[in-house]
């Protein structure tokens, strides 16, 4: 057990994978010489060389598509996209190729591709570097969508993604990279599609993932002080969603608050709310609540950005309202 940062945990998993399997390579903009836009791959070029720590041109569609082809051709590529906003330039390859080739070929092809990217706001990077679009990806059958929230998961879910025969997308909240936590390297790959109860409680379920987990846990502590026992569910995988764990929690607590940095309209939080309406309607003692980003492109100014993103006080007050204490 060692204490390290989220970015270091990803690096450990990358090194382990690169060591274990000569078919693994990391490719993306500035992953090599520069060391990664978020310094995740720092030092890997020196260890594994430029073939396997491959700097790419600025061509998201081109190199993500090349990752798909390389996966078809027998490699195990990990494609890094700097930020989720830039991944939009590669959406064609994601939705039209990575997600379809297996099905469209009648099961002949398999695309063992891993794609990692930073997501989320909070660093005053404004509207072209701060969005949370993982919910869009979770819409698409044929791919898997992971959102590690802890140091351990940053490591274990990446290893799980690499062991998976299908395209897996990892969304790493940019505020998590410097956070510290414990890593037990020996645990091995996590299970894709498994949500975890991060804090047990019996009055309300706070359902969240990724960069919002810390906020939900902080809100749960405040709620405890107010006499409300909140359970915190970390979804970890957005697709396939662990519907059983979510429904089981709400069956225990009878109340649900969904916290998601995506926008509300047409969103992943709406998906979870719909799931509860479909599968746990009669368990609910109060309406489902959601705390999401304001319906605005994430602004630059600090106070405006803060106002746009989900905050702990908003989670607390949304929860209190379910108890008639708003």
């Amino acid at each position: 057990m060692t204490t390290l940062t989220y970015r270091e945990a990803i690096r450990v998993a990358l090194s382990t994978a690169l060591d274990a399997d000569p078919r693994v390579l990391l490719m993306g903009e500035d992953v090599g010489r520069y060391g990664g836009a978020y310094a995740v791959s720092k030092g890997l070029l020196e260890r594994f060389g430029p073939e396997r720590i491959r700097d790419t041109p600025l061509a998201e569609s081109g190199f993500l598509g090349a990752g798909i082809g390389a996966a078809l051709g027998g490699l195990r590529p990990i494609v890094e996209i700097m930020t989720v906003n830039f991944s939009l330039l590669a959406l064609d390859q994601v939705v039209n190729n990575a997600a379809t080739l297996r099905h469209m070929s009648g099961g002949q092809l398999s695309v063992p591709l891993v794609v990692r990217m930073a997501t989320g706001g909070g660093r005053q990077l404004a509207a072209q570097h701060s969005h949370s679009l993982e919910g869009w990806y979770a819409h698409v059958p044929g791919i898997k969508v992971l959102a590690p929230a802890t140091v351990q998961d940053a490591h274990d879910l990446l290893l799980a993604a690499l062991a998976d025969p299908d395209p897996v997308f990892l969304f790493e909240h940019q505020l998590l990279y410097p956070t510290e936590g414990e890593l037990d390297e020996a645990r091995g790959p996590a299970r894709i599609g498994e949500a975890l109860v991060r804090r047990e409680g019996h009055d309300v379920s706070l359902i969240t993932y990724g960069g919002s987990l810390g906020k939900a846990l902080a809100a749960a502590s405040e709620l405890a002080a107010a006499g409300i026992s909140a359970e915190v569910i970390d979804l970890r995988t957005l697709r396939p969603l662990d519907t059983d764990t979510v429904c089981a929690s709400v069956t225990r607590t009878h109340r649900a608050v969904i916290i998601d940095e995506g926008w509300k309209t047409g969103s992943f939080s709406a998906e979870v709310a719909a799931l509860l309406a479909e599968r746990a309607f009669y368990e609910l003692d109060a309406p489902i609540a959601r705390v999401c980003s304001a319906e605005v492109p994430i602004p630059y100014a600090k106070h405006l950005e803060e106002a746009a993103l989900p905050r702990v006080p908003a989670i607390v007050s949304a929860t209190l309202e379910l108890f008639g204490r708003g």
Partner: peptide, 25 residues
């Protein structure tokens, strides 16, 4: 025979990747 691609231009990056795999392997 790797398809059969109906997004105009969409097959080219995939072909590049297949060749990358061959070149590395």
């Amino acid at each position: 025979f790797f398809g059969g691609h109906a997004i105009v231009g969409g097959g080219l990056p995939v072909a590049v990747g297949l060749a990358l795999a061959d070149s590395m392997l």
